[in-house]
Amino acid sequence: MHELAICQALIGQVEQITLDNNAEKVTRIVVKIGPLSGAEAPLIERAYPMAAAGTIAENSLLVLETMPIRVRCKSCLAETEASANRLLCGECGDFHTELISGDEMLLAAIEFDKAN
């Protein structure tokens, strides 16, 4: 249950970027999250309004985009889809793979009302 801490970090970044862009109010933010990031999307959704309360992002819409799990095989170099507990190469089955997508947790975009 560390999703609230993650949301607080998220709000901190959103506040700074909003300030940098001379905006007054955040209306929507987009977060990209992978299944191997260690954070659960439904829990982030529930924690977000609490973290946003009383900030520039209060009542903003949180959009979570799930990233696919993909691996690149070190043996045959194929890039294939995988699942969270089976990160094997989809072509040759080797376990010597590296994750190229699926463990990220990124603040991707912020939408706001600009000050005049």
């Binding site: 993650i6 970090a9 998220l10 901190g12 970044q13 970027i17 862009n21 905006a23 209306t27 929507r28 977060v31 990220e104 947790m105 990124l106 603040l107 991707a108 975009a109 912020i110 939408e111 706001f112 009302d113 600009k114």
Partner: peptide
């Protein structure tokens, strides 16, 4: 710009950055 004229900024910051 978003379709309704609001400004959007694409940031791609990793969360937990402070930590």
């Amino acid at each position: 710009q978003t379709p309704d004229g609001k400004s959007a900024v694409f940031v791609l910051k990793s969360l937990l950055t402070e930590n």
